[in-house]
């Protein structure tokens, strides 16, 4: 029991420190949080994507994980994200981002920092797959051929 207590104390001390660690390029993990399996790297950005239905939202939501691989800050424009939804019928449509207060603006992601944002989509509730076109996300991520990341909608 004393040993368990000691281990628990060490874990309590170390876990917050691990969470405070700067983002490590290519790790797709920050602190104790792992990026979803749908992930890719573009320029300075490591990007992860997950999709789900959320009881607080009318449409499906997209979780966008971003990790800055570089020492320098990176402009990220989530408002420019283009998302394509595949419906249960097989039809594919481009959908808008739910942003009634026009909050989504270009923002600086600091060097070696990471962030996760949950964005609701103005998409039908029978969406089964969401695909995000990553080129518009950041000029720092636009090198190379156009890249698309798709995630099945959990709970669809």
């Amino acid at each position: 029991m004393p040993r368990l207590r000691l281990l628990a104390s060490i874990a309590l001390l170390v876990m917050p420190l691990a969470a405070c660690a700067p983002y490590r390029a290519g790790s797709f993990q920050t602190g104790l949080t792992r990026f979803p399996e749908q992930r890719t790297s573009r320029g300075c950005l490591d990007i992860g994507l997950a999709a789900a239905y959320d009881s607080e939202a009318e449409g499906p939501v997209l979780d966008v994980y971003l990790g800055n691989r570089c020492d320098e800050s990176v402009w990220v424009d989530l408002s420019a994200l283009q998302v394509n939804a595949q419906l249960s019928t097989g039809e594919r449509i481009f959908v808008g981002l739910y942003d009634p207060r026009a909050e989504l603006q270009p923002a600086l992601l600091g060097g070696r920092e990471s962030v996760m944002e949950r964005i609701e989509l103005e998409a039908p509730t029978d969406s089964v797959v969401l695909c995000a076109y990553l080129d518009a996300l950041s000029a720092a991520a636009s090198a190379g051929p156009e890249q698309v990341l798709c995630a099945e909608v959990a709970g669809a």
């Binding site: 979803p36 399996e37 749908q38 997950a50 789900a52 979780d63 798709c150 995630a151 099945e152 959990a154």
Partner: peptide
């Protein structure tokens, strides 16, 4: 995180 993507989150 939201659970499954095309694999599982």
């Amino acid at each position: 995180s939201s659970g499954g993507s095309s694999g599982s989150s």
